[in-house]
Design a protein around this nucleic acid. Structure first.
Lengths: 242, 242
DNA sequence: AAGTGGTCTAGACCACGTC
DNA sequence: ACGTGGTCTAGACCACTTG
């Protein structure tokens, strides 16, 4: 590797060099890259400049980090059709990946003002808060917070929450989603959520917020999904309004 | 400003200090922050660490950069309801901001393979390519590429493309959008698009791709919008499927 | 012309993951 | 215990924007 020019966007050149090695298959999907010090030496540059190049590739979704574990080559993005209510597990396995869900906690708590508004209840009312971590091929890719109006779902504590919640609500309570209001916001992971996903605080994320309504147009659940941006592509078809 | 501890995520502390000054109104929306060197001195740190803090705030959407011009405090995000086909101009002005559109170019070109597929025509067929830059309160926030099957829209060259394209298509050709297929993908700005928006290459962006269909379910247009992530929140309601 | 942000150098120590 | 990535220092020059 010959010496590159100084002070002239070296990191963009390095970015392209590494991107090319990924495109050509020299580095394979999900493979760990050599250590930063090795790569920097191989490319005749400093660690700092090399890291700039890797950050670029990270934002582009071509590599990802596991905090303090190293850099890995990203796989294909998950295509997430938000109009179908397919659920995470089905959606991921349909695309040939292995999904897993881990329940982090579920507990009763008093509704905050924001939650009360979202669930259309009174502040301080009991809500059921479920937090789950979901992975694709063993890589954690999203943290999900689900909030339910506890008075609507007596005995929910006993249900198995590792799989699809909508199946549970349909089977036990006979309640199905009619439609949902959804917000998609680009965000940065905060320190807590970042830690859960083994990434650095500030990693680019996509927050998908969903308020689901049942056949009576009553709020069924309020849901916040914090996705790592590089794994995701959202798809949808607008409804026909004519 | 007292001296902070070494080697201990100083930049996260600095991030919070600056975020607090923004939240408290000490720094107002759209105001330019002091120069990096000034801020670093004021906060008793190095420019590099200070920049780490600013990058964090950038990913969080709390500040933004104009390339080589400095750091600015972000305003409220634009809420973009993707189900309504309100159009950029109306949408922005409804939320109290001033929208502008600048035509960068429009030209006839031969369809690439990808385009031919999207427009359901044959590779090499003539397409009309329109590129526009759109701004909110004078800040450029998105680059838009529109592709049209030229054989469907004879004489399109003469139309005024500064305003709404859908209005043009409806008024002149009597064609209206029935539904659209949409993809939302987190991306990084490439060097070209970054330059157009006065941001650095690699700035986080959101690509919204839209294929619009008319009443006969024929493709009307294919559209790629490259948004700066920090200005945007996408909203939608899933269609009722029961 | 001055000042700014953008990039880069050549180191260093720390906390954590892995063995 | 070792190596890794994460963070930080104290500079420097360049390209560009602004006055």
């Amino acid at each position: 590797m010959e010496k590159l020019k100084k002070n002239r966007r070296t990191y963009l050149i390095l970015r392209d060099v590494i991107a090319e090695k990924i495109a050509s298959g020299f580095y394979q999907a999900n493979q760990r890259l050599p250590s930063e010090r090795e790569l920097a030496e191989e490319l005749q540059t400093t660690r700092l400049t090399l890291r700039d190049a890797l950050f670029q590739l990270e934002i582009e979704g071509k590599v990802f980090r596991m905090d303090r574990r190293g850099w890995y080559v990203s796989g294909k993005r998950l295509s997430f059709d938000i109009g179908l209510d397919k659920g995470f597990m089905t959606n991921v396995s349909d695309q040939g990946y292995i999904p897993t869900t881990e329940l982090i906690f579920c507990e009763e708590e008093a509704a905050s003002g924001m939650l009360a508004e979202a669930l259309n209840i009174t502040k301080g009312d009991p809500v059921y808060h479920i937090q789950r971590k979901r992975s694709i091929n063993n890589r954690p890719v999203l943290i999900e917070d689900i909030y339910l109006d506890l008075s609507r779902y007596p005995g929910l504590h006993h249900a198995n929450l590792d799989s699809s919640l909508s199946v549970v609500l349909a089977d036990i309570y006979g309640i199905k989603v009619k439609y949902s209001d959804i917000q998609i916001t680009p965000i940065a992971f905060n320190d807590l959520h970042a830690k859960s996903l083994h990434v650095s605080p500030g990693t680019p994320g996509t927050l998908i917020t969903r308020t689901s309504y049942d056949a009576d147009c009553k709020v069924m659940e309020f849901d916040q999904e914090y996705w790592l941006s590089d794994v995701l592509r959202v798809e949808l078809r607008t409804s026909n309004k004519y």
